[in-house]
Design a protein around this nucleic acid. Sequence first.
DNA 1: TGACAATATGCAAATATGTGCATATACCCA
DNA 2: TGGGTATATGCACATATTTGCATATTGTCA
Lengths: 102, 102
Amino acid sequence: MNYEQAKARADILKALAHPMRILLLDALSRGDRCVNELNELAEVDQSTISRHLSHLKRVGIVTEHKEGTKVIHHLACPCMLKAFDCSVEVMKKVSRRQAALL
Amino acid sequence: MNYEQAKARADILKALAHPMRILLLDALSRGDRCVNELNELAEVDQSTISRHLSHLKRVGIVTEHKEGTKVIHHLACPCMLKAFDCSVEVMKKVSRRQAALL
DNA sequence: TGACAATATGCAAATATGTGCATATACCCA
DNA sequence: TGGGTATATGCACATATTTGCATATTGTCA
């Protein structure tokens, strides 16, 4: 593997590597949602949610389509949730206590 | 999923989300290596490699043991490489040209 | 023991990321 | 058309990450 390849993969993983974005993907794994609905996941500004979603769309993990004035978001790559499973595996190895959290 | 859970998972994913660390994990997937050997992967300072490895060890993806004056690093969680496969899947969806890179 | 080889750490500078506020844009409907 | 709802973006600030240099630490062996 060369540096360019590694960078391309890192860019995608970076898109996953934020608590809020993980919450967003988790929510989207249970069905498509508009920005407003996703905003209810946490008490942050609507613009913050919008930016996190942009991040996910930029790398292609999430897609969107408009329905009237709403922008519906869709998890395009459910395989990405496997990465979460890997995370859980790691946590189990590292600490039983932390694993309980997951 | 609550915020604490999401944060725990994000911490692990963050440990993956850097080109250099992906190169390191890729190298380790082909066998255990000491810091010096890993340093040959790229023209960066030895301290930089050391810190990237610390990052990977902190979250438990990589373990170490000493052999004389060398510190041998070992990929503790090969399942993590699945996350790379997911990255490739994403890239394929996003762009055929970029996917060729991977 | 003393010099050397391998690795880690303190520090400082550069860069990147995340956030809210204010505001812009797009779309709907009365 | 005008007002309201939904979403995105410019800006500024705060925080986090990455990096090299210099130096500390640890282990080996002549």
